[in-house]
Design a protein around this nucleic acid. Sequence first.
DNA 1: GGTCGCGCCTCACGCAGCGTGAGGGTCAAG
DNA 2: CTTGACCCTCACGCTGCGTGAGGCGCGACC
Lengths: 252, 252
Amino acid sequence: MTTWTVGQVADVFGVTVRTLHHYDEIGLLVPSERSAAGYRLYTDEDLRRLQQIVVYRRLELPLDEIASLLDGDEDPDVHLRRQREVVMQRFDELTELVVAIDRALEREMDERPATTAELKELFGDGFSDDYQQEAQERWGETDAWKQSAARTSRYTPADWAEVKAEMEAVNAAFVAALESGEPATGEAAMDAAEAHRLHIERRFYDLSHDVHRGLADMYVADPRFTKTYEDLAPGLAAYVRDAIHANADRHA
Amino acid sequence: MTTWTVGQVADVFGVTVRTLHHYDEIGLLVPSERSAAGYRLYTDEDLRRLQQIVVYRRLELPLDEIASLLDGDEDPDVHLRRQREVVMQRFDELTELVVAIDRALEREMDERPATTAELKELFGDGFSDDYQQEAQERWGETDAWKQSAARTSRYTPADWAEVKAEMEAVNAAFVAALESGEPATGEAAMDAAEAHRLHIERRFYDLSHDVHRGLADMYVADPRFTKTYEDLAPGLAAYVRDAIHANADRHA
DNA sequence: GGTCGCGCCTCACGCAGCGTGAGGGTCAAG
DNA sequence: CTTGACCCTCACGCTGCGTGAGGCGCGACC
């Protein structure tokens, strides 16, 4: 007996008969022989192919990719390496997941991530969803945005409250420097600028001094940012921009 | 504006509109309001629920479980802990996967895991798939079987050849002891028994001396095992059994 | 040679969790 | 009053099989 029936093959390889039927249907593994009665008969070669299929399935490759891998002229090496990357990525995701679950367990949903509504309560209408939407459109593809989104998605209302307090402290420092009559290139203003940069870096995303410059320019160029600062003190937007540039110069 | 439309909600929460429709269809998240034109309008409370859903989805919980979790009286803690275990298990699987991929890359499918056909070539008909089948039925649920299956599934033909050589060496030791006229309780026989146990432990599964006794009894009770030994030398099956028991006594 | 029981066959529908049109209203802006 | 971006409701498609239903094939035992 040098051929095997579905049941035998299924048992040995730990798959179901239906799975073998399916592989036959889609042409992934068509048994080389059939008995007079129409029984599928698998040869050694078929088994070798199935062996490969089973291995690739454990790698969670879709069946059509397995097919092209086994039939095609493509280098299995390439596929394997790609698959390795995919698995490693899943790995990272799972790591995050475990962390998320642990956090969820710790706080038992009491201090859960904040909703947009709560963010609005905290930050006022400056934090509108329309704005978030636009921000995503403008920055959605950048690493900074992704990093920021990844972090803030896990912030609780309490975290956000802290963030807000930090932001207000930085702004207050700017206002104080401005109202003391110190120029934007002065120590206090530059220190506030550096504090601003560190705040963002700590809470949202990596921020080099150069990128910080770009942000500063936007504070003046984009009326919504400008308004936030101008509401605090007239001329603050430009003052902040200049302070940030001066601070960047200082750290150049 | 204290309610949101599908598109707004979708953007902010990073899901698609279709997903929201789906959640509505299956009753997982039915928006509290509808506009005159039939637009779905999501309230703050709806968003809070969606927030929970999104979190649980990241945990890969099926939607119906999420529903019972959010609606039911069940303790979310229990679900979370269970989910954590599931994720950790996936973790282990992925670890194995990466190892498997690396091995596959190393040997580039050349020294791939052996097929049943190859095993038969190596071990003769004693290693029939029928037998494997039965073994799985008898032992399939035991840890030992699983452990063995997990290990052997990655054995290459070369590995199996080594296994076979080891087995033959052990058997030869038994035969030599038997033919030298030494009793089964003698040193040489007991040493062979211990070598037998260590061989299985190294290649297949953990094997205590007590479990080893059970195996020994089966060698006499099950005609196929008996045959394997009797073919080597008459009376060997019983001799092996006795030697194993003696060895187990020695290590008690 | 009947018939038991297991294994094989071919349909064919079902499942999750949406994706992806089709075909048609709605709403703010110009 | 039109345009264009949204919204609506069907409704079929996709993966990778699970799960019967209804019906032959085959070795064993009577």
